[in-house]
Design a protein around this nucleic acid. Structure first.
Lengths: 137, 137
DNA sequence: GTAACTGCAAAATATTTGCATCCTT
DNA sequence: AAGGATGCAAATATTTTGCAGTTAC
């Protein structure tokens, strides 16, 4: 059984063309995708609304996670490790290339712990590094 | 001369009611503000478009910076240290309280360096920690 | 007086919702 | 067959742009 089917089955989602196609895009892409990217590559096949709803479902199920950005776009990427429904373990660093604008999940770079001031309790950390990526160096 | 005027003068911006009011909001707020927050607190005085343009100007001048979030909102906060036009030094950690939803700049907690894979050159780092804040503990 | 800032109107974009129809299981 | 997923239309929300009038310096 291929990866796409496995993921959908595991999360008890029905297997539909739209979900398969969008999952394939994520698997094919090294990095993260914006809603617009996905829409562009599926517009002949699916409605924009379907893309919205599919992404929302995937986030809820813990299949993809959202990546923080400073502009007002939202980026999504596959959860590679340990994500369960309602409880993301998205503790790797994201890298945004200021040259090619691609966002890359550095799965092997974990977000370091920081010491917070007295009284603050951390639950989750996210880190985004901007710079020049491997391909643009 | 008060702080608001100082900031505007230093960045050679003309002193207008809108800019003064918005800057005051930032200074009064411990944390970060969303466009919607600002609009809510100024809607009797200023047009929504003015808020957009003022925030944009402030970001360009390095007076405020944008904070990455995972939902698709954009948050802004005053740059306390060393920000110059076109070159933000926004290297402190941001804390988002999952209880009260406030975003707080932890100015004294600097973003740690991470070791990136071969070939990646970092230029800037941002870090967002989610958890329970001082007031909600 | 001049350049810059603002408000208003409107365009362009992005997101959400309702409902009828179709597909997966 | 039944529940869930999709497409379409339309309602909302968000952001941008143009231009005329006003304000700061």
């Amino acid at each position: 059984m291929n990866e796409v089917l496995q993921i959908l089955k595991k999360n008890s989602l029905s297997v539909t063309e739209g979900r398969k196609k969008i999952l394939e895009l994520f698997i094919a892409s090294e990095g993260a995708l914006a809603h617009a990217d996905i829409e562009k590559q599926t517009s002949n096949n699916f409605d924009r609304v379907t893309v919205y709803r599919t992404l929302q479902t995937f986030v809820e199920k813990g299949i993809i996670h959202q990546i923080p950005t400073t502009d007002n776009s939202v980026l999504y990427a596959l959860c590679r490790h340990n994500c369960e429904q309602g409880h993301h373990h998205d503790n790797h660093v994201h890298f945004i290339c200021s040259n090619c604008d691609k966002t890359i999940c550095l799965d092997d770079v974990t977000v370091p712990q920081v010491k917070l001031p007295e009284g603050f309790t951390p639950l989750q950390s996210a880190m985004v590094v901007t710079g020049i990526c491997l391909d643009c160096a």
